[in-house]
Simulated assay, not measured.
Amino acid sequence: MEITLKPEAIQLGKRVYNSKDINSESKDGQAITELAHKAINANGTINNLQAFRDLNQLIVTTAEQLQQPNRQQYIDLVSDYKKVGVNDIMQYNVEDKITKVTTALTATGTGVNFTKVPSFTSRVYATPYKHQFGIKYSISEMYSDPINQFKNAVDLVNEEKVRYILSQIFAVVREASANSKIPAKQKSTVANITFQGFKAIETALLRYSKNVKPVMIADTALIGSLADKQASVMVTGSTTVPMYLTDDMRKSLLTDTTIEQISKTVAISIDNPYIDNMNSKVELPVDEAILIAGGSASPIKVTEFGDMALLSDIIQQHIESEEAFLKIAYKVDVTLLLNRAIGYIKDTSVVL
């Protein structure tokens, strides 16, 4: 399904999203309200199919043009990220300074492809696989408060897009670990990893990067577990004197909602909210962490080809509510170029 919006409609979406003073009496507020009311009814049904699709395409297009740096940072911190044209050709350098890249793992959306990298090759091509993800918004809320709900829907598109890319990054690293493609010293898949076990992975990455701090990305549950273990390590021969618990760390454990450092490693907590009404499910793993050696380009490559597109939009009827479900497609390459710059932790003792 291809919908082309007029330039003035695209500008309207950007103004509505960026304005802090917009209300239902303003010109732009009236315009977005008119579009929403033309598209849907208060009873949760489609009023005008073309207007409904125009509204949903405007949500996706606005999200594409207003990707927010604070959400994109999760991808930027663990990968070499680029966005190119839909028909552009992208190549990755596989000549690591220390060791030759021999294998590339690429997420396809349905699995992971392994590609052997010939010894005579200095570059490999990115493959623009078509990926899909979806979002939902409440029909009744969009009808009653179109300005704020339009903004919320735009945010949701970007949030889900980032979480989807992160899920594919975890997929390729998980597959690399399962196939013994990550150095044994730089991974742990045992339940209840000890702090010494974490330090061993960190030490290996520090040696590789010549003492540049690694970056770790994980759910807050795993980062919190590692922080608690760091705080509980005692000086040899003592049961009361902590070895690694500094005043700053003690304060952070008591007051901060996220922990920003474990030992010498920069810790990045991923945005991983509940996705069900019983607060029992999340999209990204809570028991896995990816560590990237500092001081060099990430072995994880992410390239977006072109813009997101609205693939389909339907109304889903529920007992208590009606929701619009948008399926969004875009072409992206998520590839792990295997070298020694990556670490992986899976601790099954960490749960929601």
Rank of each mutant, 00 (worst) to 15 (best):
A289R: 01
T240N: 12
G237R: 10
I300L: 02
M278Y: 02
V266W: 00
V286A: 13
I292C: 03
A297C: 03
A227Q: 00
D228E: 12
Y274C: 11
M249F: 13
A231D: 07
T240P: 05
S296A: 07
K251E: 05
A289D: 07
N277D: 14
N277C: 11
G306D: 01
S269V: 06
T236M: 10
D271A: 04
P273E: 10
S225A: 14
L291N: 03
T257D: 08
F305M: 02
G294I: 00
T239K: 09
I262V: 15
L253F: 11
K229I: 09
D276Y: 05
L284T: 09
Q230M: 15
A297Q: 10
K251C: 02
T303R: 01
N272W: 01
D247F: 10
S225E: 03
T265Y: 04
A297T: 05
G294T: 02
V286K: 13
S232Y: 00
E283S: 13
V286H: 10
P299M: 02
I292E: 01
S280I: 06
E260T: 12
T246G: 11
G306E: 03
Q261E: 11
M278N: 14
L253S: 06
A231E: 10
M243D: 15
S280L: 04
S232F: 01
S232W: 01
K301Q: 02
P273G: 02
M249A: 07
D248E: 14
F305Q: 03
M243E: 14
Q230F: 12
L291V: 06
